[in-house]
Amino acid sequence: MLRRHRIISPRTLLAWHQRLIKKKWMQPPSAGRPPVPQGLRQLIMRLGTENPHWGFRRVHGELRRPGHRVSPAAIRRILRAAGLGPAPRRHPTRGEWTTFLKAQSNGLLATDLLHVDTIGLQRLYALFVMEVHTRTVHILGVTAHPTAAWATQQARQLLWHLGEHAAGFTHLVRDRDAKFTAAFDAVFASEGITVAKAPPRSPNCNPHAERFIGSVREECANRLLIYDRGHAQRILHDYAHHFNEHRPHQGRQQLAPLDDPKVLLLPAARIKRRQAVTGLINEYRRAS
């Protein structure tokens, strides 16, 4: 009778009993070492990122100087969790190029090709060079069939146009496009300008040129239909004029490339609007 109306099985009852015994005699987990504070974790990752040739023991020694107390093993775990493996850490290329670009910006040129498509689906290519320190852009030429000889000739015309100003440049950053040949590099080498080739498939190593290409497309090329090569050349030259003489740049404290940073302008009582690049862009200037 009792077996027929039982609520639980003997196996369940025994399991509950064993669980109670285990709970009674189980020791509480030890607290262990206190966790590394978040601020110190960030400092460890910063040291590992900024110094790719430092191992965890070198980081440990550097942290002891300002009085931080953390074990080498903890530093190693934090660096590994952040993807900063044993030193020397691989692929520090982006950081090295960032440092190089900042150090050489006063005498740095950057070049690249940008493309636009016409209403007839013909692809046109424009070669440009930027003076990185001032962000001044030179549109060298537009063609449907860019060749190495064409790019080399455009480089010669640029240096002729720059004249004595070319002596202030020391490096040119370019990608590894086949149109940039040894003859192209030799044109700049003749003026004492060293050509620095960006790593393969690394547009981030030529950021100023890439940013200009993005600005052209966002503010100009993607907002109108281009008829032919002549139309594309006029539009790009108009945009370069706006870019150099009016467009503010964060890297220049919101000054345009050709603005004089020594000139302090007082607030204008009245301003007037001028439409540039076939009316695509508004420019605001002092009213006379």
Rank of each mutant, 00 (worst) to 15 (best):
H231I: 03
V187Q: 04
F243H: 12
Y284C: 05
R247T: 01
W160G: 11
A268M: 01
G95Y: 00
K179Y: 02
A287V: 03
H133F: 14
I226P: 02
V277W: 02
Q42Y: 14
V59K: 00
T98H: 10
H165T: 05
V132N: 13
V36C: 03
A183I: 03
H68G: 05
T99M: 10
H17Q: 11
L40S: 08
W25T: 14
E96W: 08
R274L: 13
D112S: 07
L280Y: 03
T111E: 10
G141Q: 11
Q27K: 14
L43P: 00
L236Q: 02
T111Q: 07
P86A: 15
G32A: 12
I8D: 14
L2C: 08
A144E: 08
I7Q: 13
H241P: 01
S288E: 12
K262I: 00
S71M: 09
L101M: 14
L162D: 05
F243Y: 12
V277A: 05
R6E: 15
I271S: 08
L121F: 13
D228G: 13
R58W: 09
T143M: 05
R76N: 11
L127R: 04
Y284M: 06
Y125M: 08
A155H: 01
E131P: 01
E283S: 10
N204R: 09
D185C: 04
N204V: 07
L140A: 02
A183E: 15
A232M: 05
F180T: 11
R247P: 02
A189S: 06
P88R: 10
A232C: 10
T152H: 07
R252K: 06
W97D: 09
S202G: 09
T194W: 03
D259T: 04
M26N: 12
H165L: 03
A221L: 12
G55L: 00
R58D: 12
L224D: 06
L13D: 05
H60N: 02
V36F: 02
T152I: 00
E50N: 09
P52N: 11
R135P: 01
A221H: 09
G83S: 09
R46D: 14
